[in-house]
């Protein structure tokens, strides 16, 4: 029996969809059977980031309105046999998706998958309620910005009213040099304000955007900072205890020499 995890943030543009895609990929790399569900009706992105856009025939609304079977709407990933995507509808009416419908779909998928990751739309309206409806767990994504922490706080408050486990936190897009100079909130501060468990931190990395634009989640690459971060988060979801990745850039021998000569700070 699988576990349904909703990935949400309240604020838009903090990296819910990227996180969903990368956690899905990381879990698939660990040989778990994973299904991704995009619930952002009208503004679907998950398929683009996964590079599966051209394979969509049916979508989640088609399933709900019984125009097709759920197995027909699921798209198999091009890299993994154990990773599937249920895309959102692009043109259908938003109101077609209901919390009851989501519960139905998730209950149908659960026996066949280890993890079902639900990509939640921004906001706290109907779309959010739909996405949360069938979930057992929640991951809240935030960035080290005041406004996004505020919205995360709001979302955590709403999640506490739902019948799910206490949410976990992913802090995305950390720019270490800005944290150091005090221009960005640091992770400890965010965790203290939100007072929930930290699941992982992801550095702001150009590779993430690059990879997304190529339709291949960054987690698929073996050794960028972000991919390691996502893989670590996936391992923590599986229950392993993995230490947090240091955001510090390693000082190489050349750097040390440069520093000694006062060329580089």
């Amino acid at each position: 029996m699988g576990e349904a995890i909703v990935i949400t943030s309240g604020k838009g543009g903090v990296g819910k969809t990227t996180t969903t895609a990368n956690l899905g990929t990381s879990l698939a790399l660990l040989d778990k059977k994973v299904c991704l569900i995009d619930t952002d009706i009208g503004l679907r992105n998950l398929d683009v980031i996964m590079g599966l856009e051209n394979r969509i025939i049916y979508d989640i609304v088609d399933v709900l309105e019984k125009r097709c079977k759920i197995s027909q709407a699921l798209i198999k990933d091009k890299r993994f046999d154990c990773l599937y995507l249920l895309p959102a509808a692009q043109t259908s009416d938003k109101s077609a998706l209901t919390p009851e419908g989501m519960v139905e779909i998730i209950d149908e998928l659960k026996p066949d998958y280890d993890y079902i990751l639900i990509d939640c739309p921004a906001g706290i309206e109907q779309g959010y309620k739909n996405a949360v409806a069938g979930a057992d767990k929640a991951i809240v994504v935030t960035t080290p910005e005041k406004s996004s922490v505020r919205d995360a706080d709001r979302i955590i408050g709403l999640l506490e009213q739902e019948d799910i486990e206490p949410p976990h936190l992913v802090v995305n897009r950390i720019r270490n040099h800005m944290v150091k100079s005090g221009d960005m909130l640091d992770v400890d501060e965010i965790v203290q304000v939100l007072s929930i468990d930290l699941l992982g931190i992801v550095a702001d990395d150009d590779d993430v955007i690059k990879a997304s634009n190529h339709g291949e989640p960054v987690a698929f690459q073996p050794n960028t900072k972000a991919s390691i971060a996502y893989r670590n988060i996936a391992r923590r979801i599986l229950g392993e205890s993995v230490p947090l990745l240091s955001l510090e850039k390693k000082e190489t021998f050349i750097d040390k020499v440069k520093k000694a000569f006062g060329i580089q700070k």
């Binding site: 709001r154 408050g157 709403l158």
Partner: peptide
């Protein structure tokens, strides 16, 4: 005994 969060 709780956290009063944004909006609450």
């Amino acid at each position: 005994n709780k956290v009063v969060r944004s909006g609450q």
